[in-house]
Design a protein around this nucleic acid. Structure first.
Length: 470
RNA sequence: GGCACCAUAGCCAAGUGGUAAGGCAGGGGUCUGCAAAACCCUUAUUCUCCAGUUCAAAUCUGGAUGGUGCCUCCA
């Protein structure tokens, strides 16, 4: 598999440190509020990466943190008159509600900053011993000028930055890009004991500490949104490599934003749509489908029409599975051997096409194209030929499995929930139809429609399904 | 001021040197008692523009234009 590595700005073959075992760290949410669609993109993207690697029989250790202490947490907790801890507990629960429904697998570890304080302090101590830190009135700072490679990820030059920057941001810092490792306690804020007095960790150090704690000094993949590249990830590199004396990350992956009217969706911009709200309208699986239909590094515009397109496109796949199920149930022992064999070959080709797409920097749009091609193909030939149950089963399993790798469940579970009295009505309608009593037949169909059941007449007989959202 | 990224049909979106995937929407048709679903045909001689390299460019180079992001919290 090849992955675009932001460190080199090139697609590179993914070679994990340990054969067949890949370590992944994804920057998780600050749990002060529900997350919006833009926040959801990395969760879904990197979950899909993980699922694909698992499908390829790789072992994956996946870590996604919760930032549960920072200014936003403190402010929100104060505004709501609850503790930071209470806020975190509540929002972590809410996170899992949405993430679970988006079918984002739980990470192997979900560390929290507040549960990693000893490791954070230890790392800062190491940095202090090695001479990378200095102390100001409000905290302990990292001196970026001491770290030679500073800027290697975001390709920034310290001097260039300073030239056009606002000097007032410098405060007492030695360099503009210096950042705080440990913030000294202010009145009313949560604080922990440390060699530098009571306080709390800065934002960047937590990820370095959590990454090291669960995945070691050097990890294979570290991922997050584009906006984290600088300064967050740049700072993580500086801390971790300065402290550990080893490369921090081999592959950096950053996803593009979800935009609204071409402007980044963001809480601070006020132009955001919560996943919780959108899910009520479109369903979680449609949101996942929508995210995955664009390549992860490209900007993705949030709009009504594409969301509807996602709804219909996803429906098309689900329906095709339901249609194949119906064909299998009503399969005939006499079938077209050549066409059945051909379908089996097509399935094999589809899997190859799918893998080729995914191997190429997680090209999920192309992966969907492969699935849609199979859908169209099976629809086409099943309309003209009688196919073997075995070949149909293969096609069906293929669609379901490939969608599963993308974290989407293509199986229509509502199928087997048709009550007997509804089936009875369907039978009555069929009889009426046979007698060409279309008035009665249509009345029954309308009644069942009103109850949420849909009847479709097929050459194999009537097909009933339940209209469901999500 | 610095550093990046993006520009492909009505909409969304792949493709990054060999002659434009896929989805949605629209139009026409097949099937059907009517529907529904499905299928078929159809919708970019062309990839923001200009110049260059090449037998060959949406794809490479240079330039222009438009848009965005980061440099402060940010997925």
């Amino acid at each position: 598999m090849r992955i675009y590595n932001d460190l080199t700005r090139k697609k590179e073959k993914l070679v994990p440190q340990r054969e067949n075992h890949i370590t992944i760290y994804v920057c998780g949410p600050t749990v002060y509020d529900l997350f919006h669609l833009g926040n959801a993109r990395p969760f879904v993207i990197y979950d899909t990466l993980r699922r694909y690697l698992l499908y390829k029989n790789k072992e994956v250790t996946y870590v996604q943190n919760f930032t549960d202490i920072d200014d936003k947490m403190i402010n929100r907790a104060q505004a709501r008159n609850i503790t930071v801890k209470q806020l975190a507990e509540e929002m972590i629960e809410e996170y899992f509600y949405d993430a679970d429904n988006l079918n984002v697998m739980r990470a192997d570890h979900h560390p929290r900053a507040t549960e990693t304080i000893p490791e954070i302090i230890e790392m800062i101590s190491t940095l202090e011993e090695k001479g990378y830190t200095y102390v100001l009135n409000d905290g302990v700072y990292f001196d970026t000028s001491k770290f030679e490679d500073y800027g290697k990820l975001s390709k920034r030059d310290l001097d260039d930055q300073e030239a056009g920057a606002r000097v007032d941001l410098l405060d007492d810092k030695r360099n503009l890009s210096d950042f705080v490792l440990w913030k000294f306690k202010k009145e009313g804020e949560p604080a922990w004991e440390s060699p530098w007095g009571e306080g709390r960790p800065g934002w960047h150090i937590e990820c370095s500490a959590m990454s090291k704690k669960y995945l070691g000094d050097t990890i294979d993949i570290h991922a997050g949104g584009m906006d984290l590249m600088f300064p967050h990830h740049e700072n993580e590199i500086a801390q971790s490599e300065a402290a550990n004396g080893k490369p921090f990350v081999n592959y950096w992956m950053h996803n593009g934003f979800i935009n609204v009217d071409n402007v980044k969706m963001a809480k601070s911009g006020g132009n955001f749509f919560l996943v919780r709200e959108l899910a009520g309208e479109y369903g979680y699986d449609v949101l996942r489908f929508f995210i995955l239909q664009a390549h992860y590094r490209m900007p993705l515009n949030f709009e009504e029409e594409p969301l509807m397109a996602a709804t219909h496109g996803w429906q098309r796949i689900q329906r095709s599975v339901a249609n194949i199920d119906f064909l299998i149930t009503n399969a005939s022992p006499e079938y077209d051997q050549a066409q059945s064999a051909e379908l089996t070959d097509y399935v094999t080709a589809t899997v190859e096409e799918f893998e080729r797409a995914m191997d190429d920097d997680l090209n999920t749009p192309d992966a969907f194209a492969a699935i849609f091609n199979l859908v169209r193909h099976v629809n086409t030939i099943s309309a003209d030929y009688v196919l073997s149950a075995a070949s149909l089963q293969k096609a069906r399993n293929c669609i379901v499995e490939l969608c599963g790798i993308l974290g989407l469940d293509a199986e229509n579970k509502a199928e087997d929930e048709i009550p007997d009295d509804v089936l009875e009505q369907v039978k009555l309608r069929d009889l009426a139809k046979a007698e060409r009593d279309f008035v009665t037949a249509d009345r029954i169909r309308d009644e069942l429609n009103a109850l949420g059941y849909k009847i479709e007449d097929t050459p194999q007989g009537p097909k009933v399904s339940r209209e469901v959202r999500n």
